[in-house]
Design a protein around this nucleic acid. Structure first.
Length: 587
RNA sequence: GGUUCCAUAGCUCAACCGGAUAGAGCAACGGUUUUCUAAACCGUAGGUUCCAGGUUCGAGUCCUGGUGGGAUCACCA
């Protein structure tokens, strides 16, 4: 039986016997590190039943439960806080279990399926730092759900059609001179991005020209020849015009090649990819049904709406008066498609918080339509990555390009490593891999260590750190351990005579690690894993500095420390794997 | 304007869903290497948790009102 369960049981028993109160909601928390003890029970809420001072109440309860449980070595009372300390046998047991069974994570997702949609790029420009946050978060949350036992489907919905795609196509057609990624020496996505920007520049000029000729601003935007041409192209695309389709295929193909290399370098992947060009007509049938069942209603001009005012929102359009569908209609259709294909228990959208309203509406509509899966929808709404001067904007060129940033951070890794000069004997290929692992790791960790929901700042002038709370720090800790283990003889695990305080801290962190994963899954929050691994690495470095491991004379103590180090290394590797970050054996 | 999210050390972020003396890293200053990797370790300094009330034994955390910032409210996606 779990120690915590027993503890709660006995505490309940104590409170019932002593104060006649049954059925209270007992909970323990980790003892604050500034006090002695392992777990803490707060007695303040029970004072009105005990009618005694906090100290006396805590002591009574402490006396009772330490009498009943032999795992309890001692307890101390500070004001209304009852701090309980377990004996060494208990901790030995915990460690023995960890050795025998490895890292055991509660399978809260057993027999459940989850579909996580992330990345979802537009195929008209290269990826930037904001996309990296999305990808890294999406991938990590998939790893975490996998670790807690879910059957995970990593899903990408590629926005490969629409007016924005036609913009790059028009520009390429006009000014491209049959340029190819090879002839231009550019990645495909960057080449297309160039034409997207080019379109916007010419378009802005046209609009200004028209305005100077006295045309109204909104009118000018509509009537600019480029925009007219773009709309025509979209029309042709929808009608299946051969020439347009083949241009579209060619340009999109280039972009996919570009994305693929970016994804590979980032280490993210997908099990199922949907293309909007295949799915954009979905949802229309559902709209038809919803109209019949009066979930939707039709206005005089033929447009179809849903009234969400009872839920405190507005009326929302689901089909235009010309019969075409809008963004949300496609999402309704795609949600249904997902369910038909996977029958998932949960489906997650990793999408920025600027779409909070959209997903609230989407879920409401699915509920109104009586879709059984609607409750399983979760919008993992992450914050934007801001620059010191504010939001990143593709059109204004104030973006941090994903590929450039990866190059930069990998070359920083190279420079740092060379300065430290500890990599003698590594082959050029091993070194190149190391720089990749360190650089990309630093970048990913930088993005994952902050709470996903919060918006964060990135200052391009200050390059990403390699010291302190960073991936290289943790990776360095791992290589220290790897190096130790290479030099150490095979050992049998033994318990030392006494635990050193740092050793005790390590044991606690290791034993608490599975709970961290559970919590990270429940909160859809990889940063909890990052912080726990950091805490562990930091504590290990303190341990490593304060105590000798291989040079320790006492056999038991030495083998214990080697085993403990090994466990720390395994835990770091496990945690980093959940974050999608690799660990090197040397650095 | 309506809705919604946010505000913690000079900077970037934590704080186990209401608990004890609010913690890290960076930056600054000082120290540690004949000994297992100094990308490390130890120390100093840095706080009225935006403001004003309220609830509670207890509030950075919950409620009300302000101030400041972001997002959103399209027959765009």
């Amino acid at each position: 039986m779990n120690i915590l369960t027993t503890l709660v049981e006995k505490t309940q028993e104590a409170i019932t016997k002593l104060y006649g109160l049954s059925d209270s909601n007992i909970s323990f928390e980790q003892t604050n590190s500034k006090f002695d003890g392992d777990l803490t029970f707060v007695v303040f809420p029970y004072l009105k039943y005990s009618k005694k001072r906090p100290e006396d109440t805590a002591k009574e309860i402490g006396d009772y439960i330490s009498e009943k449980m032999e795992e309890i070595k001692s307890f101390n009372v500070v004001k209304g806080f009852l701090n309980i300390e377990f004996n060494d046998d208990y901790w030995l047991n915990v460690l023995q279990n960890r050795i025998d069974l490895g890292i055991q994570i509660p399978e809260i997702g057993m027999d459940k399926k989850i579909v996580v949609e992330y990345s979802s790029p537009n195929t008209n420009k290269p990826l930037h730092l904001g996309h990296i946050r999305n990808n890294v978060l999406g991938y990590s949350i998939c790893q975490i759900f996998d670790a807690v036992g879910y059957d995970v489907v990593k899903n990408n919905l590629v926005n490969d059609r629409g007016i924005h795609i036609c913009k790059s196509m028009v520009a390429y057609q006009k000014w491209g001179n049959s340029e190819t990624p090879e002839s231009a020496g550019l990645k495909g996505d960057h080449l297309i991005g160039k034409y997207y920007v080019m379109f916007d520049q010419h378009y802005q000029k046209e609009v200004i020209d028209l305005i100077s000729k006295g045309v109204d601003k909104d009118d000018a935007k509509e009537k600019s020849p480029l925009m007219v041409e773009t709309r025509n192209m979209l029309q042709k695309w929808e009608n299946g015009d051969q020439e347009v389709i083949s241009l579209w295929k060619k340009l999109n193909g280039w972009v996919y090649d570009g994305f693929e290399s970016t994804y590979n370098r980032l280490g993210v992947s997908f099990d199922k990819i949907y293309y909007e060009s295949d799915t954009y007509l979905l949802g229309k049938e559902i709209v038809k049904e919803g109209l019949k069942s009066n979930v939707f209603f039709k206005k005089e001009d033929g447009s179809i709406w849903i009234d969400l005012t009872p839920e405190g929102l507005d009326e929302k359009i689901v089909q235009r008066s010309d019969g075409t569908s809008v963004y949300i209609t496609q999402d309704i259709g795609t949600a249904d498609l997902k369910y038909q294909e996977f029958e998932m228990d949960k489906f997650v959208y990793v999408v920025g918080n600027e779409q909070d309203y959209h997903f609230k509406v989407l879920q409401l509509i699915l509920k109104r339509l009586g879709k059984s899966y609607a409750d399983g929808l979760y919008h993992l709404s992450y914050g934007m990555v801001d620059l010191p001067e504010g939001k990143m904007k593709s059109r204004e060129g104030t973006v941090v390009d994903a590929d450039e940033l990866m190059d930069e951070v990998v070359s920083t890794a190279k420079k740092q490593t060379e300065e430290l000069g500890k990599t003698d004997g590594m082959s050029p290929q091993e070194l190149a891999e190391l720089y990749e692992v360190l650089g990309i790791g630093a970048l990913k960790y930088y993005l994952l260590k902050v709470d996903a929901k919060k918006r964060m700042m990135y200052d391009p002038k200050e390059s990403i750190d390699f010291q302190g709370n960073t991936a290289p720090f943790i990776q360095y800790t791992y290589t220290r351990i790897a190096s130790l283990l290479r030099a150490a003889e095979k050992v049998d695990f033994k318990l030392p005579k006494v635990f050193n305080p740092v050793e005790k801290d390590l044991i606690k962190l290791i034993s608490n690690y599975p709970n961290v994963i559970t919590s990270a899954a429940n909160n859809y929050n990889p940063s909890e894993v990052a912080n726990a691994v950091y805490e562990l690495a930091k504590t290990f470095n303190k341990f490593y500095h304060e105590l000798t491991i291989l040079g320790e004379q006492d056999q038991n103590t030495r083998s214990f420390r080697i085993t403990l180090s090994n466990m720390v290394g395994e835990t770091i590797k496990h945690g980093f794997n959940l974050l999608g970050i690799q660990v090197p054996e040397r650095m």
